[in-house]
Computed example of a mutant assay.
Amino acid sequence: MVLTPTLYCAICGAINEVHAHSCFACHHPLSTQQVPVPVQLLPHMLFRDRYSIIGKVGAGGFGSVYKATDTQSGGRLVAIKEVSLLGLHPQAVIEATTTFQREVSLLSQLDHPNLPRLYEHFQSPGYWYLVMDFIAGETLEAYQSKAPNGRLLLSEVLDIGIQLCTVLEYLHTQYPPIVFRDLKPANIMRTPAGRLYLIDFGIARHFKPGQAKDTVALGSLGYAAPEQFGKAQTTPRADIYSLGAVLHQLLTTKDPSETPFRFTRLRPSSAKSCSDPGSLTTSMVEMLVNELEILIASMLEMDASRRPPHVARVKQELDGLSKLWSDIHKSFWRPRLGYTPQART
């Protein structure tokens, strides 16, 4: 194979033609540089004289993710996200560079229990690296797939919704507000203890007051709000739509990407409660399901102005439903009181 002479930008790692004077991606002046030798991160390797590589834990998009221990921080577990620009065409280099820089810019200013911490970032010719918290667990997508028939307990779904509201409220109350724009089960990590983390800030952005619409239409079909496809600028209400799609999927097991913008009811209108007809418990269950269905339907409104005004309102509703479900559960399992007939002797 014949290698074409190239220059690698020391600032962004982009591949440029050998006669270029400035980087096409970041416009930084170029100087004569050596072609980088790809570094493969292997188990037991000490990377940058600091990170002891344990192994690769994921790959996709423009690179890979490795699990490692930080030998300079008491053996703390970290995730090293490697973005490779080698072999990418110019437009892909720009996209990968923009995605990386956006994630660094956002994560470096955030501090929240449901977000991974960014410890450092660096680059070498042809590569970008992020070092952040290693989150032990699995994606919410993988977790749901292992549940019986793909269904989670209602109490668990409500807790998931409340946790996601908490971190989204934190993002939305930054100045300017940060819109995540890609909330879906595959971008949510769950630890064995049930704690959630948002991952992949590659397309998150700051809300820009006065801007008519997003510069580029981005999002995951089925989870992304309609305005993310070029009709208007995405506001925090776009994340509310995505949260509604996630909750609907967790409750119904229906993947919204299969029928974008079309959501069925949480349960068929012919469904009947298995509780005693006419009992207080039955009435409370009916009320809870109805209120939850109304809430999710409002979150999934095509018109952003008709969705809840902010995620704090959604959290308030979910908190109330969670408390109601707890009361119902206690009532259902409460021992019967009063006279108990004794067997005749």
Rank of each mutant, 00 (worst) to 15 (best):
Q144F: 11
K67S: 08
G126D: 09
D239A: 03
L280E: 15
A186D: 08
E156G: 00
Q101L: 15
L171G: 09
S270D: 09
V78W: 14
V35N: 13
C23D: 02
M302C: 03
L183N: 06
D276T: 14
L30M: 07
E120I: 04
H44S: 15
I135H: 07
H28A: 02
D214F: 05
T191Q: 02
S257W: 11
L152A: 08
H21Q: 12
T264S: 06
I240D: 07
R307A: 11
L321E: 10
Q233W: 02
Y143E: 09
D303T: 09
G244A: 04
V314F: 04
Q40I: 15
S31Y: 12
G55D: 10
V157N: 03
D214G: 03
L198H: 03
G244T: 03
P29I: 01
Q249M: 12
W128P: 00
E17K: 15
L86W: 07
V35L: 14
A20N: 11
L251I: 01
F263V: 00
L88P: 07
N114C: 08
K81L: 04
G278N: 07
P5V: 11
G202F: 08
P116A: 06
L292S: 05
G137V: 05
I15Q: 14
L243A: 03
A79L: 14
P177R: 00
V104P: 04
L300K: 01
L140Q: 08
P277L: 12
S275H: 14
P113V: 01
P226F: 06
H248Q: 00
Q91F: 03
D200G: 05
